[in-house]
Amino acid sequence: MAKHLDPRVIKTRSSLKDALINLMQQYKIENISVQKITETAHITRGTFYLHYKDKRDFIASAMTEILDDFFNAVMIDSTGRLPMITTSTQVTQLFSVNAAFSYIETEANMFNVLLNTQANGVFEYQLITRLTKALERFHDQLKSDFLEINVPENIQIAFIVSAYIGLVKNWLADGLIYTPHYMTSSIQKMTALISHDPQKLTFSDFFFTQADFVPHPAAN
């Protein structure tokens, strides 16, 4: 059950998170002190320690919150979106590419800092982990409908996760010169070139690329 947080707590945590992102543009995480964070957020150290045990606890919580918000916004259910499924009626979760690009566009500075300016790669590692686990669940739930290509699943997953995250990083580094709709349409065209049995699933089917996607109620 989701906890109801006091608006003042939400505001404090948001200010601290914004301060962290701001500081990460200038310093590596290991060089960012609690004092720098609280001064940037205009919050006392006492207030900081009311919410977090230490800097490590704060950073872990901040990264988790960012990823939770992102995945809550971009995951949609598979109802009517995987016509090749024949042996399972189970509803699974898909990753809406268009919703992801749109979300990242609205938080472009934050994502650019987290993905393109941090040598330590803390956020990117956690994003890779979350995507990897989501793809593993997708495969486990629909395994009997998957195309067998004689390549281990972990290699397939690593390949596609790296491709998508690399594309996002490049898009951010280029200054978002293409719209989310154009990026989604481009991915749709590229993945369509990969020929496979239309009656079978591949890991690319986890990434829903319908260009005129309308947000599903569950994603709001």
Rank of each mutant, 00 (worst) to 15 (best):
Ser61Phe: 09
Thr47Ser: 15
Gly46Ile: 09
Ala2Trp: 10
Ala119Ser: 14
Asn150Arg: 04
Thr106Met: 07
Asp77Thr: 13
Gln93Trp: 12
Gln141Ala: 08
His4Met: 15
Pro215Arg: 04
Ser186Gly: 03
Thr12Asp: 06
Ile187Tyr: 08
Ile187Pro: 00
Ile149Val: 13
Asp174Ser: 14
Leu176Asn: 06
Thr202Glu: 05
Lys200Trp: 01
Thr89Tyr: 01
Val151Tyr: 09
Phe95Ser: 08
Gly121Asp: 12
Leu94Gln: 02
Asn98Tyr: 00
Thr184Ile: 09
Ala73Tyr: 04
Phe58Gln: 10
Leu193Asn: 06
Leu131Ile: 08
Pro83Leu: 12
Ala108Val: 07
Ala99Gln: 08
Ser144Tyr: 02
Ile194Asn: 04
Ala41Phe: 14
Thr179Ala: 09
Ser204Glu: 11
Thr86Ile: 00
Phe58Met: 10
Lys11Ala: 15
Phe207Ser: 05
Ile155Arg: 02
Arg81Asp: 05
Glu105Pro: 03
Lys55Gly: 01
Pro7Phe: 13
Leu16Val: 07
Ile149Pro: 03
Ile165Phe: 14
Ser15Ile: 01
Ala41Asn: 06
Ser204Leu: 08
Gly80Leu: 11
Gln25Arg: 14
Arg81Tyr: 03
Asn112Arg: 10
Phe208Asn: 02
Arg8Ala: 15
Leu172Lys: 11
Val214Lys: 08
Thr40Cys: 13
Asp205Gln: 07
Leu135Arg: 06
Val91Ile: 15
Met84Asp: 07
Leu201His: 10
Asp145Ile: 04
Ile160Met: 04
Phe138Lys: 02
Phe48Pro: 11
Asp174Cys: 11
Val161Asp: 01
Phe58Trp: 05
Thr129Phe: 07
Ile85Arg: 07
Asn116Gln: 08
Leu94His: 09
Ile32Pro: 05
Ser96Met: 06
Asn120Glu: 15
Gln141Cys: 10
Phe48Asp: 04
Ser204Phe: 13
Asn98Pro: 00
Asn116Thr: 03
Ala119Thr: 15
Val34Leu: 03
Asn116His: 05
Met84Gln: 14
Met63Gln: 09
Ile128Trp: 07
Leu147Gly: 03
Leu94Ile: 07
Thr40Gly: 01
Pro217Met: 10
Thr179Gln: 03
Ser162Arg: 15
Ser204Thr: 12
Lys36Glu: 05
Ser96Val: 05
